[in-house]
Computed example of a mutant assay.
Amino acid sequence: MRETTLSLPQIGDRMSERAAPPLDVALREWIGPAGFARWSELRAWIDEFYPGVFVPDWLYGGKNRGWTLRYKKTKALTTLVPEFRRLSAIVVMGRAERERFEERRYAWRPELVTLYDNARTYVDGKWLTLPVSDGSDLQDVKDLLLMKRPPVSNV
């Protein structure tokens, strides 16, 4: 008899089924209830602070990168990455954002500064990938987004 190998997802695996962008029920199952709560909170927060500015856009990056949800107008605000049992947010920081980050360097959480220092800088900016594991991580993402682009209204 031939043995079949069942490949179970590993923490950090991407949603790579190409057929269609994932629905909320699949996202909740994939990233887990706590991750989905942070996913929902961050999406609602973006809608509240930037009303009518961004239309989230699902992007398929192939089998290895899977599905991501990008918030972009002319410049990207953030990209949310649903991973198996984990949620990450990507924030691309251009020159102006990096200068503002450095001005407040000692006010940020040490974990965020370490992620920032270890992130690669490309021609278009520093690509900072933030795992969103708890409320502190979620607040870091919100603070970076507020630094990157002031809210539309006085919320």
Rank of each mutant, 00 (worst) to 15 (best):
M1L: 07
R2M: 10
T4I: 12
T4D: 07
T5S: 15
L8K: 07
P9Y: 01
P9I: 03
Q10C: 08
I11T: 12
I11N: 09
G12F: 02
D13C: 05
S16V: 03
R18L: 07
R18V: 10
A20M: 10
A20F: 11
P22F: 03
D24S: 06
L27W: 06
R28P: 01
R28Q: 13
W30A: 04
I31Q: 02
P33N: 08
P33Y: 00
G35F: 00
F36R: 02
A37L: 13
R38F: 04
R38C: 01
W39H: 10
S40N: 12
E41H: 10
W45R: 05
W45Y: 06
W45D: 04
I46V: 14
D47Y: 06
D47V: 00
E48G: 01
Y50A: 07
P51L: 06
G52M: 06
F54Q: 09
V55K: 12
P56R: 09
D57Q: 15
D57P: 00
W58I: 12
L59C: 13
L59N: 12
Y60N: 02
Y60I: 03
Y60S: 00
R65T: 04
G66Q: 03
T68C: 08
L69R: 04
R70Y: 02
R70T: 07
R70M: 09
K72C: 12
L77E: 07
L80S: 02
V81C: 08
P82T: 12
F84H: 05
R86A: 11
S88K: 08
A89D: 04
I90P: 00
I90C: 11
R95K: 15
A96T: 15
R100H: 10
E102R: 15
R105Y: 15
Y106W: 14
A107V: 08
W108V: 11
W108A: 13
E111H: 05
E111L: 01
E111C: 02
E111S: 08
E111D: 09
L112D: 11
V113P: 01
T114G: 10
T114Q: 14
Y116I: 05
Y116Q: 01
N118D: 11
T121P: 00
V123L: 15
D124W: 09
G125H: 07
G125P: 08
W127K: 15
L128M: 11
P131Y: 11
P131C: 12
P131V: 07
S133Y: 02
D134F: 04
D134W: 04
S136Q: 13
D137K: 03
D137G: 08
L138C: 11
L138S: 13
Q139T: 10
K142V: 05
L144K: 04
L144R: 02
M147L: 15
M147S: 09
K148W: 05
K148P: 04
K148H: 06
K148C: 06
R149F: 07
P150T: 10
V152Q: 13
S153Q: 14
N154T: 07
V155Y: 11
